[in-house]
Nucleic acid binder design. Structure first.
Lengths: 135, 135
DNA sequence: ATAACATCTGTAGTATAATACGGAGTCAAG
DNA sequence: CTTGACTCCGTATTATACTACAGATGTTAT
C-alpha cells in the first residue's frame, strides 16, 4: 500500500499542509497513522477522501455537508431508514444543482454562439435569462 | 414597473437587508434609484439579478466569479473575442461540475437502492467511489 | 556530521461573506 | 401628531475555512 507523508499528499492533491492538519482537527479527515518520528502517514484511502473533499468544496458544499456525505453509509437495519432519508434529501439537492447548472450552461452556449459579432441588444445581460428565461 | 424597498426585495429573495447593502458596496449589485427620502428602490431586474447571485452562490461560485458571469456580455467587436474566450472557459468549468455532480448522484442512487437493508460490506464509505469509481 | 529541509505543536492572523449595532431620519396608521 | 416600523450610514463583529508563524524535533543529502 502506498503511503505519503503530509507534504507529499498535500502536494499531490494541491492543498496546503496546514489544511490537512485543519481537516484533522475538525474531524473531516481521520487521524492518520504515525511513525516513531510522530510524523503523519497517509494511504490511498486518505488520498481519495481528500480529493473528494476538495472537489465537493468546489461544487459548493460546505465542510459540514461534505462530512455528512462522507458519513453516509448503511451500518445496520436500525439506522437504515435515517440514512436513506438523508441520502434522498441530498439527491434532491444535487438534482436541483444539476438543473440550474444546465441552465447556466445553455445561456453560456447561446452567448458563445451570438459571438459571431452580430448586432446585439444594448446592455442587457444575457446571464439574467438563467433565472427567469424568456419563454 | 414593480418596485421594492430594500426590506421588501430582501424578504422576497430571502436575504438580509444588510447583505444588499454589502452587495452594493462590493459592486455586485448596482446602485439602486433613490426617492427623495434617500430610500433605495429596486426593480424587477434587480430582483432577477439578486436571485441569480443567491443561486450561483449555492452552486459554489464566489461573489467574484458571479460578478464575472454577470458581466459577460458582448459589447463591441473589440471585446468580442475576449468575452467568448471567458465564456468558453466558464462553460468548461460548468460542464465539469455537472459531470461530478452526476457521479455523486449515481452513488447516492446506488446507496438508496442498497437501502433495502441487505447485508453490506463492512465500513467502506460508498461515497468515496465518486472520485475514483471502481470501474 | 552538519547543513538544509520537513514535520511537529499550539496559537495567531487573514480572506470572504456576511451580520449586528448605534444613533438619526422617514413613513404610515390610529 | 405621535408612535412603531422601516431605512439611513458607518463601523464593528462573526462564521467559515483556511494560512502563517515560532520554536522544537526529525530526516536526508553531501
Amino acid at each position: 500500500m502506498e503511503h505519503y507523508k503530509v507534504g507529499a499528499i498535500a502536494e499531490k492533491v494541491g492543498v496546503n499542509v496546514e489544511t490537512l492538519r485543519y481537516y484533522e482537527k475538525i474531524k473531516i479527515m481521520p487521524k492518520p497513522k504515525r511513525k516513531e518520528s510522530r510524523y503523519r502517514f497517509y494511504d490511498e484511502l486518505d488520498l481519495r477522501r481528500l480529493l473528494f473533499i476538495k472537489r465537493a468544496k468546489e461544487l459548493g458544499f460546505t465542510l459540514k455537508e461534505i462530512k455528512e456525505l462522507l458519513n453516509l453509509k448503511i451500518e445496520s437495519t436500525a439506522t437504515c431508514g435515517d440514512v436513506k432519508h438523508l441520502a434522498e434529501h441530498k439527491l434532491t439537492d444535487i438534482e436541483e444543482r444539476i438543473k440550474d447548472l444546465k441552465n447556466i450552461k445553455n445561456v453560456l452556449i447561446k452567448l458563445i454562439n451570438q459571438c459571431v459579432c452580430e448586432e446585439l441588444s444594448t446592455d442587457e445581460c444575457p446571464i439574467l435569462e438563467i433565472i427567469d428565461p424568456k419563454t
